[in-house]
Amino acid sequence: MHRIFSLSFAVLYPLYVTKVEKKGRTTQELDQVIEWLTGFDDADLQRHIAEHTTLEDFFDDAELNPNAPLITGVICGMRVEEIEDPLMQRIRYMDKLVDELARGKAMAKILRTA
């Protein structure tokens, strides 16, 4: 088991917030991206943060967006579409979306609607 699987979402989330805010994006946009991927709403996100849910449990609880396989490209030196471990792929999907948000990509493109 990879050690990132046991990382708390509550530890990762503030890192994402810092990353996107440093690039002029908002926490609301970050939440929108995470909620699109996971099917969670604001209350679900806050609950996972408060409960220090591991990434493994976070994604076990998620209803992955059917368009998630449209997320492609390289993140952390790996092509997300080629990652074999389903949990690692979901984590990297989230990383990729956050990276796209921080890079200023249009929200419609991030959410694979355009």
Rank of each mutant, 00 (worst) to 15 (best):
A50S: 09
G104I: 01
I49Y: 09
V17F: 04
D61L: 10
E84A: 10
T26P: 00
L12K: 03
F59Y: 11
E29D: 12
L111G: 14
M94N: 02
I91A: 01
E21C: 08
G73W: 13
E81C: 13
V98M: 07
D95H: 03
D44H: 08
I83T: 10
A108G: 10
N65L: 00
S6D: 15
P66L: 08
R3Q: 12
M94E: 00
H2I: 03
E29H: 14
L64N: 02
R79A: 13
L12N: 04
N65T: 00
V80S: 04
K23R: 08
K96W: 03
K109D: 14
R47G: 06
K96H: 15
D42F: 07
Q89I: 07
S6A: 09
V17N: 00
D60I: 05
A108P: 15
D60W: 07
L70N: 15
L64M: 05
F5Q: 03
E82A: 07
L15E: 10
L87W: 01
T54V: 06
V80R: 07
V20L: 01
K96E: 15
P14S: 11
F58P: 01
E56F: 13
V98Y: 03
L30A: 00
A62R: 08
D41P: 10
A106I: 08
D85P: 11
R92H: 09
D31P: 01
T72A: 12
K96F: 02
I34H: 13
E63I: 07
R92I: 12
N65W: 02
F9A: 05
I110F: 01
K22P: 07
T113C: 09
V11D: 11
S6W: 12
L37V: 05
K105Y: 05
I91V: 08
Y16M: 13
V98R: 02
D44K: 01
L64Y: 00
I110Q: 01
R112V: 12
E51Q: 09
E56T: 06
W36T: 10
G24W: 13
H48W: 11
R103K: 14
A114Q: 13
D99M: 06
N67F: 13
F58A: 05
I34Q: 06
E81P: 12
D85I: 15
F58C: 02
V98E: 04
R90N: 14
A106G: 05
S8V: 04
E35Y: 12
N65D: 03
Q28S: 08
A108D: 14
D44Y: 09
L7D: 10
R112L: 14
R92K: 11
L37G: 01
V80N: 06
V98Q: 05
F58R: 02
Y13N: 02
D95Q: 02
A106V: 08
G104K: 03
A108E: 06
V20K: 00
V20C: 00
K19N: 09
R25H: 11
P69D: 01
T27C: 00
V33A: 02
V20G: 00
G39L: 07
M107I: 15
P66Y: 07
